[in-house]
Amino acid sequence: MFNQIAFAGAIEVGFLYGFVALGLFLSFRVLDFPDLTVDGSFPLGAAVAATLITTGTDPYLATLVAVGAGACAGFVTGFLNTRFGILHLLASILTMISLHSINLRIMGRPNIALINEATVLTPLEALGLPRFIILPIVFGLLAIAAKLLLDRFMAGEIGLAMRATGANPRMARANGINTAAMILLGMAIANAFVALAGALFAQANGAADVTMGVGVIVIGLASVIGGEAILSPKTLFRATLACLAGSMLYQFAVALALQADFLGLRAQDLKLITALLVAAALVLPGRGVAVRRMFGRGGAK
């Protein structure tokens, strides 16, 4: 009931959304900043990369620019919040909705095909291995590298200041930490991760589409929450590992649900299944306590 290609596909997409989960971990968990920008920064990454690639830019450079664009989007959300005092959730919604127009402007049309273009993945195809094997491996290595980099950053002075900003802003300020700057930086990094996922996703799937960001936030949250449920995140190393594991778990759950014919589920039910998974994680007893504190009734603290 679970064929080889679907299996490899789930791993591939699992690692790709792992970047989203890492980004959301940074905003939601570390900074305590519920950030919906991702629904816009994911397609932003795809749009920027696809547009640049089709106009002849080197795909690596295009991906890098896409990452920078994502960072800008996160920065804007952080700026709306820290500078103008707009509620974090609302600030992120404003950025998200404006990115829809911006993405259409960037691409000039609702979608761009990349099938015949050289992408960052083209050199890998020269290795002679089938695509469905090489992509999960490459994305896996990239995601693990990103996880380790994030771990190292968090253990550094700025990373520590960022964690204090999210956990106890008053204490952070009393210790000389510019909390607004930390929020701006953290939001930029978080959305850079998400845009990188979008850029790679478009290149792996051969197209960028303005609607590809719908529900990314919920998939990312499902990954973060699911990961925490299976790996209790006592340390930072485990917490970021849980993001990747949760992303993988989510993709397998979805693949299973869609392949189980007796359930009668179809691809269009995906978002509903995701929402149900997240809702279940918030409602279920036990492990859900920490999760609920963050996302559930009563909000943060």
């Binding site: 550094g156 002075e157 520590l160 200041a161 204090a164 952070a172 210790n175 000389g176």
Partner: peptide
């Protein structure tokens, strides 16, 4: 965190 209070600038070092 507290030890770096007066330094102002924080870096990427551990």
């Amino acid at each position: 965190l507290a030890g770096a209070r007066v330094r102002g600038r924080r870096g990427l070092g551990l």
